[in-house]
Simulated assay, not measured.
Amino acid sequence: MQLAKFAYRPSLRMETGVSLPVVLMFLLVITILGTLGIRRATTGETLSRNQLDYEVARQAAEAALRDGERDLRIPSVLQTNALCARDTNRPLVVGAPHFDTNCPRGQCRFELTHYDTSNYMATPVVNPEPWWPTINDKQGRWDGDPAGAASPKPGDATGVNVNCNFDGSVPLGTFTGVARLAGVARQPEYLIEYLGRGDDQLMRITSRGFGADINTEVVMQTYYRPYK
């Protein structure tokens, strides 16, 4: 009696493992999640920085408003730490040459009818308000492009040109001696407009402040009646 002999032969079927595709898929998902996380963190940081810069500009504009009010109360003598002295328009003389349409040393006066038809959307601009910019044909009295060259005024970005006979806006502390601000791209400034009738010395003060970035700008206005 003979026993049957069986020979063992290994299977020729190829292995079809799934480990590599699964690992690659996990790596792709992790990479996408990591990228989204980085972008979200970067966006959050940018928003926080912009908000902080806005707050700096807002507080700078607020400081300029208060400085404009203080300016209306000072006498016509050089104040401590001030770069310039106010002329002899204290008590206030609200007519030319102290207050006129050229806004000498930050003091503007227009007829009230000027404001009634003011329109910056027209071409050319009709009766420009003094606190409009000078750029883009707006024909206002701000110092043009804030990112451009510093204006030749006291307290400008150069800090060396003390020109006390200027037209247009007043940099912070020019007449009052208030300390200049640190950490801003440009010192805040203000304009004073006389809007009164008769003995009513109603003033409108418009200010603008800048953040650490020159392109961050805040404009504020207030109405003020100086005491006589």
Rank of each mutant, 00 (worst) to 15 (best):
residue 52 L to F: 13
residue 35 T to W: 05
residue 29 V to H: 01
residue 13 R to V: 14
residue 11 S to T: 07
residue 45 E to A: 11
residue 58 R to H: 13
residue 28 L to I: 10
residue 36 L to E: 08
residue 48 S to F: 07
residue 36 L to V: 13
residue 9 R to S: 12
residue 23 V to M: 14
residue 32 I to C: 01
residue 21 P to G: 02
residue 28 L to Y: 07
residue 30 I to V: 14
residue 33 L to T: 15
residue 21 P to F: 00
residue 53 D to F: 00
residue 63 A to H: 03
residue 42 T to V: 12
residue 58 R to K: 15
residue 28 L to R: 03
residue 31 T to H: 03
residue 57 A to Q: 02
residue 49 R to C: 03
residue 29 V to Y: 01
residue 48 S to D: 04
residue 44 G to D: 04
residue 23 V to G: 11
residue 22 V to S: 14
residue 54 Y to D: 07
residue 50 N to V: 15
residue 34 G to A: 13
residue 34 G to R: 07
residue 32 I to E: 02
residue 18 V to S: 10
residue 10 P to V: 00
residue 34 G to M: 12
residue 60 A to Q: 03
residue 12 L to K: 07
residue 51 Q to V: 10
residue 12 L to W: 04
residue 42 T to W: 05
residue 25 M to F: 14
residue 21 P to W: 00
residue 13 R to E: 15
residue 54 Y to E: 09
residue 16 T to P: 03
residue 30 I to S: 14
residue 39 R to Y: 06
residue 25 M to T: 13
residue 14 M to D: 14
residue 41 A to C: 07
residue 32 I to P: 00
residue 17 G to C: 04
residue 47 L to F: 05
residue 31 T to G: 11
residue 27 L to M: 11
residue 55 E to S: 13
residue 52 L to Y: 12
residue 40 R to S: 09
residue 22 V to Q: 09
residue 30 I to N: 10
residue 28 L to W: 11
residue 49 R to Q: 11
residue 12 L to G: 11
residue 44 G to Y: 01
residue 29 V to R: 02
residue 31 T to D: 03
residue 61 A to L: 08
residue 63 A to Y: 04
residue 13 R to L: 12
residue 47 L to C: 06
residue 34 G to L: 11
residue 26 F to N: 10
residue 54 Y to Q: 10
residue 63 A to M: 06
residue 43 T to Q: 00
residue 14 M to Y: 10
residue 46 T to P: 02
residue 39 R to N: 08
residue 52 L to E: 08
residue 61 A to H: 07
residue 28 L to G: 12
residue 58 R to P: 09
residue 42 T to I: 10
residue 33 L to W: 02
residue 39 R to L: 14
residue 26 F to C: 15
residue 45 E to I: 15
residue 56 V to P: 15
residue 49 R to H: 04
residue 62 E to R: 09
residue 40 R to G: 07
residue 19 S to H: 08
residue 12 L to P: 11
residue 62 E to W: 04
residue 34 G to W: 02
residue 48 S to W: 03
residue 9 R to K: 08
residue 60 A to H: 03
residue 9 R to M: 09
residue 29 V to K: 01
residue 46 T to Q: 02
residue 27 L to T: 09
residue 53 D to C: 01
residue 41 A to N: 14
residue 14 M to V: 15
residue 11 S to F: 01
residue 14 M to C: 08
residue 41 A to V: 05
residue 43 T to F: 00
residue 42 T to Y: 05
residue 44 G to E: 02
residue 21 P to H: 01
residue 20 L to V: 15
residue 23 V to H: 07
residue 34 G to V: 13
residue 60 A to P: 00
residue 37 G to Q: 01
residue 57 A to I: 13
residue 48 S to R: 08
residue 29 V to E: 00
residue 43 T to Y: 00
residue 45 E to T: 13
residue 16 T to Q: 11
residue 41 A to H: 10
